[in-house]
Amino acid sequence: ENVFHPVECSYCHSESMMGFRYRCQQCHNYQLCQDCFWRGHAGGSHSNQHQMKEYTSWKS
């Protein structure tokens, strides 16, 4: 089941984030949609070496 997250992806700027959401544990307010995370995208001061937390629902 695809879950809708009402936040913007920090890389592709999609405002309709579906599926899993990934939030960086080091960068303030840096979040990736499932597609950008799986493709290994990073931007700004974010590094792929940073720990990311996976969210499967909006409330989590």
Results as ranks from 00 to 15, higher is better:
residue 26 Q to R: 05
residue 17 M to P: 11
residue 49 Q to D: 14
residue 25 Q to G: 06
residue 4 F to L: 10
residue 40 G to M: 03
residue 9 C to W: 00
residue 36 C to T: 00
residue 53 K to D: 07
residue 52 M to H: 00
residue 16 S to I: 14
residue 32 L to M: 01
residue 5 H to R: 06
residue 29 N to A: 10
residue 28 H to A: 14
residue 50 H to P: 02
residue 57 S to I: 08
residue 44 G to C: 03
residue 2 N to V: 08
residue 57 S to V: 11
residue 56 T to D: 15
residue 1 E to W: 03
residue 47 S to M: 04
residue 44 G to H: 01
residue 42 A to T: 09
residue 38 W to A: 15
residue 55 Y to E: 14
residue 26 Q to P: 02
residue 17 M to I: 12
residue 11 Y to L: 04
residue 20 F to V: 14
residue 39 R to L: 09
residue 58 W to P: 15
residue 9 C to H: 00
residue 35 D to Q: 06
residue 17 M to G: 13
residue 18 M to V: 14
residue 6 P to N: 12
residue 37 F to N: 03
residue 44 G to F: 00
residue 29 N to V: 05
residue 56 T to L: 02
residue 15 E to H: 13
residue 32 L to V: 08
residue 1 E to P: 09
residue 43 G to Y: 04
residue 42 A to D: 05
residue 34 Q to R: 10
residue 52 M to K: 01
residue 52 M to T: 07
residue 2 N to Q: 12
residue 20 F to K: 15
residue 31 Q to W: 14
residue 37 F to T: 03
residue 10 S to W: 01
residue 18 M to W: 05
residue 3 V to C: 14
residue 17 M to R: 11
residue 55 Y to K: 02
residue 39 R to K: 15
residue 21 R to N: 09
residue 32 L to R: 01
residue 56 T to C: 13
residue 20 F to N: 15
residue 48 N to I: 06
residue 56 T to A: 12
residue 7 V to M: 09
residue 12 C to M: 00
residue 57 S to T: 11
residue 33 C to N: 02
residue 15 E to L: 09
residue 44 G to S: 06
residue 40 G to H: 05
residue 54 E to T: 15
residue 26 Q to A: 11
residue 32 L to S: 04
residue 12 C to W: 00
residue 26 Q to F: 04
residue 58 W to C: 11
residue 36 C to W: 00
residue 32 L to K: 02
residue 50 H to Y: 02
residue 34 Q to A: 09
residue 27 C to L: 00
residue 55 Y to V: 15
residue 60 S to Q: 15
residue 7 V to K: 09
residue 37 F to K: 11
residue 16 S to K: 11
residue 12 C to N: 01
residue 22 Y to H: 09
residue 21 R to W: 10
residue 24 C to W: 00
residue 9 C to S: 00
residue 42 A to W: 04
residue 49 Q to R: 12
residue 3 V to T: 14
residue 52 M to R: 01
residue 20 F to C: 14
residue 49 Q to K: 07
residue 48 N to H: 06
residue 26 Q to L: 04
residue 30 Y to P: 01
residue 34 Q to H: 07
residue 8 E to K: 05
residue 20 F to Y: 12
residue 4 F to N: 12
residue 42 A to L: 04
residue 20 F to G: 15
residue 14 S to A: 09
residue 7 V to D: 11
residue 57 S to W: 06
residue 20 F to I: 13
residue 17 M to W: 09
residue 5 H to G: 08
residue 42 A to I: 03
residue 34 Q to N: 07
residue 34 Q to Y: 07
residue 50 H to D: 03
residue 17 M to H: 14
residue 56 T to Y: 02
residue 11 Y to V: 06
residue 1 E to G: 04
residue 38 W to Q: 15
residue 34 Q to F: 03
residue 44 G to A: 03
residue 52 M to L: 05
residue 31 Q to P: 02
residue 27 C to Y: 02
residue 59 K to D: 15
residue 35 D to N: 13
residue 18 M to N: 14
residue 28 H to S: 12
residue 58 W to A: 15
residue 43 G to M: 09
residue 30 Y to E: 03
residue 10 S to K: 02
residue 20 F to P: 15
residue 48 N to E: 07
residue 6 P to L: 06
residue 59 K to L: 11
residue 40 G to T: 03
residue 50 H to C: 04
residue 43 G to F: 02
residue 27 C to M: 01
residue 36 C to L: 01
residue 38 W to H: 11
residue 35 D to H: 11
residue 17 M to D: 12
residue 6 P to A: 13
residue 60 S to F: 12
residue 2 N to Y: 10
residue 50 H to S: 02
residue 31 Q to V: 13
residue 15 E to C: 06
residue 32 L to G: 02
residue 24 C to Q: 02
residue 16 S to C: 08
residue 40 G to L: 03
residue 51 Q to K: 12
residue 23 R to K: 14
residue 49 Q to I: 06
residue 5 H to L: 08
residue 9 C to E: 00
residue 25 Q to S: 07
residue 10 S to F: 04
residue 43 G to P: 01
residue 46 H to D: 06
residue 7 V to Y: 07
residue 4 F to D: 14
residue 55 Y to C: 15
residue 48 N to L: 05
residue 6 P to Q: 06
residue 59 K to I: 03
residue 47 S to I: 05
residue 50 H to K: 03
residue 49 Q to H: 07
residue 55 Y to R: 08
residue 52 M to I: 04
residue 30 Y to Q: 02
residue 30 Y to F: 06
residue 32 L to F: 00
residue 8 E to M: 04
residue 5 H to C: 10
residue 40 G to R: 06
residue 14 S to H: 09
residue 36 C to V: 00
